[in-house]
């Protein structure tokens, strides 16, 4: 497990700036989404394999804590998608854009685009969280 320790301390110490932070955020959002996706495939399959359990699974997702997590999940999927599109465009069509000064600008642009796309979704979900989770707006 020493390679694991080296990797994590390296993540903190490495001074790769923008590209390094994009790399880390891409991994974290990807792994987080995969964790949810795995659970989501299994709980959705209950509709066929164990229908009576499906309502229990959904009841868990309606918990305010899970609803807050869902807002983070939406950010993860949006960021991972925007950054993945950046990587795909650079790798497949515009390798010259990996040049460090362009790349640093593109990392910032990616984050801004992701946040702008996420905010309206977060607002709607935040409203529902207050409504269903805490009884606001007559919920």
């Amino acid at each position: 497990m020493s390679s694991l320790k080296t990797a994590f301390s390296g993540y903190v110490r490495y001074k790769g700036r923008a590209g390094h932070w994009a790399f880390l955020l891409h991994r974290i959002t990807g792994l987080g989404t995969l964790l949810f996706l795995t659970i989501h495939i299994v709980d959705t399959s209950f509709v066929y394999f164990a229908p009576q359990l499906y309502e229990h699974a959904i009841a868990l997702y309606r918990n305010p804590l899970f609803m807050a997590g869902e807002i983070l999940l939406v950010f993860s999927l949006i960021y991972h998608g925007v950054n993945g599109l950046r990587i795909t465009i650079f790798d497949l069509w515009k390798p010259e854009w990996w040049e460090i000064h362009d790349e640093r600008k593109s990392v910032l642009l990616t984050l801004i685009v992701a946040i702008v796309l996420w905010l309206p979704a977060a607002a709607i979900m935040g409203y529902k969280l207050l409504e269903y989770g805490f009884g606001f707006f007559g919920g």
């Binding site: 499906y54 959904i58 997702y61 609803m67 869902e70 999940l73 939406v74 979704a121 529902k128």
Partner: peptide
């Protein structure tokens, strides 16, 4: 997740 929401899914 956003438009329908988990409270209307069963």
């Amino acid at each position: 997740d956003v438009l329908v929401g988990v409270h209307r899914i069963d």
